[in-house]
Computed example of a mutant assay.
Amino acid sequence: MKTQDIETFFDRLAEAHPDPQTELEYVNDFTLLVAVVLSAQATDVGVNKATRALFQDVRDPAAMVALGEEGLREHIKTIGLYNSKARNVIALSEKLLAEHDGRVPSSRAALEALPGVGRKTANVVLNTAFGEPTLAVDTHVFRVSNRTGLAPGKTVEAVEERLMSVVPKAHIMDAHHYLILHGRHLCKARRPECWRCPVADLCAYEGKTTA
């Protein structure tokens, strides 16, 4: 995709989503971190249903450790991989208390050193909580980047690197939100809704659909 087309691509997505936000529900940096960890291989809708009651009472690492792994499992048992996720959330809460005074760190290295936190989770937290210009490449971002020709790549890392090099500076802060929302609501995996897509004329996808 040409530079001018990429600028137009993001201008249109920005117009479609003037105030893009994560669809995960959270109340502070800690609950954001927990929600993102829980969202791996799960839908935001499913995570939100599980965490609404949880985050009413558990909003910091100390409260999470006090709840314990068994108590947390009861809250999140409707989410895939809930056993391992419960272990990771309790372990990362303990590490936050032991090494970061109970605060979510703002460095990538410290975040990725937490149990259950990989690069994608760190990117989301750095962007959403700390205003860093990062791009979290989930399945939606990966699909949209490859399907449209925006930032093709065979791996998540390759797509992230390509996106960071081509996304206009004016849109870098919100780019992953734009792409996630576009992939979730229009550029769907099984049948993209090309007939109502604002960037269809810029897209390289050969199998465009009609209503």
Rank of each mutant, 00 (worst) to 15 (best):
K2P: 01
D5K: 10
I6A: 08
E7V: 13
F9W: 10
R12V: 06
H17W: 13
P18H: 09
P20A: 01
Q21K: 14
T22P: 05
L24Q: 03
L24S: 02
E25F: 13
V27M: 11
V27W: 11
V27K: 15
T31P: 01
L33Y: 04
L33C: 02
A35P: 08
V36H: 01
V37Q: 07
L38R: 05
L38H: 06
S39A: 15
A40S: 13
Q41H: 11
T43V: 11
D44N: 11
N48E: 11
N48M: 10
R52G: 10
L54R: 00
Q56A: 14
D57T: 15
P61G: 05
M64G: 01
V65A: 09
A66I: 12
A66C: 12
G68M: 09
E69Q: 14
E69S: 10
L72I: 09
L72R: 00
L72V: 05
R73I: 10
R73P: 01
H75N: 11
H75D: 03
T78N: 13
T78D: 12
I79E: 06
G80Q: 10
L81Q: 10
S84R: 13
A86I: 06
A86E: 01
A86W: 08
I90N: 00
I90K: 02
A91R: 08
A91E: 09
E94N: 12
K95L: 13
K95W: 03
L96R: 06
E99K: 12
H100I: 02
G102M: 02
G102C: 05
R103Q: 15
R103A: 15
P105A: 06
S107Y: 08
S107T: 15
R108P: 06
A110E: 14
L111C: 05
E112T: 11
L114H: 03
L114N: 03
P115R: 02
G116Q: 06
G116H: 03
G118L: 02
K120P: 08
V124S: 01
V124W: 00
T128A: 07
F130G: 04
E132I: 05
L135I: 15
A136I: 02
V137E: 05
D138V: 05
H140A: 02
V141C: 02
F142I: 04
R143C: 06
R147D: 05
R147V: 04
R147N: 02
R147H: 09
L150Q: 06
A151N: 01
G153I: 02
K154E: 14
K154S: 14
K154M: 12
V156W: 04
E157D: 13
V159L: 07
E160I: 00
E161T: 12
R162M: 11
L163C: 01
S165V: 07
V166P: 08
A170I: 09
H171N: 08
H171P: 04
I172V: 15
M173R: 07
D174E: 13
D174K: 13
H176W: 03
H176L: 00
L179C: 09
I180W: 03
H182Y: 11
H185I: 11
K188V: 14
R191E: 12
P192V: 00
C194M: 09
W195H: 15
W195S: 15
C197M: 07
P198A: 09
V199P: 03
V199K: 03
A200Y: 05
D201A: 12
E206D: 14
T209D: 10
